[in-house]
Computed example of a mutant assay.
Amino acid sequence: MSGSFDNPAGSRGTRQPAGRVLRWLNKMMMSWIRRRGGTFMGMNALVLTTIGRKSGVERATPVGWFPGEDGSWLIVASAAGAPKNPAWYHNIAAHPDKVRIELAGRTVAVIAEQLHGPERERAWRQITAAAPRFAQYEQKTDRELPIIRLVRRSG
């Protein structure tokens, strides 16, 4: 089953990346992805644009992605194993129909849905086989790492 965004924070995990250095690094990564597309540090990467849950302001974040069924994109709200979901997860939960991605020199309007149950399990096996570091992230925290499917918005 997919759809609802209902992933609670955990009680343990690594420190969530933050601060001036991370913002600078994210800007550099987004510039790289927009100019060169494709991969960053050996992983498929895209620029995820969401609408701030509280501010209503557009927020852009570089994230890794994995191919989903029917041409969709799968992203993981891992926050490197932090106890809390990343801010972009909450932004998507508030506005799942106002999400865009940039990759390979194009911008695509998408609808976001969180995967649950057997769908999530299949996607998780695919993701951890392709990028074992995600299994390590999940071991660091007691929350289930949300997997979000991004599907091209029609129209």
Rank of each mutant, 00 (worst) to 15 (best):
G117C: 00
T141A: 02
T141S: 09
A129M: 07
R122F: 12
E113A: 13
A112N: 07
I127L: 10
R133Q: 12
I148A: 00
A123G: 00
L145K: 02
I111Q: 08
E144Q: 10
G117H: 12
D142N: 13
R125M: 12
E144W: 06
A130R: 14
Q126V: 08
T141R: 06
P132W: 10
A123H: 03
G117S: 12
R149H: 02
Y137F: 01
R122I: 04
L145R: 02
E121Y: 13
I147G: 04
I127P: 05
P118D: 10
I148T: 10
K140V: 05
E121N: 09
E138I: 11
Y137R: 03
R122T: 05
Q136K: 09
E119R: 10
E113L: 14
A130G: 00
Q139D: 14
R120T: 13
H116I: 12
P146C: 03
T141V: 08
Q139I: 02
R149V: 01
L115I: 05
W124K: 04
T141L: 05
H116D: 09
H116C: 10
P146S: 08
E144S: 15
E119W: 00
W124Y: 06
I147Y: 00
R120S: 04
R122N: 08
I127D: 04
A131T: 03
G117I: 14
I147Q: 00
Q126F: 03
P132N: 07
Y137H: 04
E113D: 09
T128A: 02
L145F: 08
Q126D: 03
E121S: 13
I147V: 13
E138S: 13
Q139R: 07
K140G: 15
R143I: 12
E113I: 08
F134P: 00
L145H: 07
I148R: 03
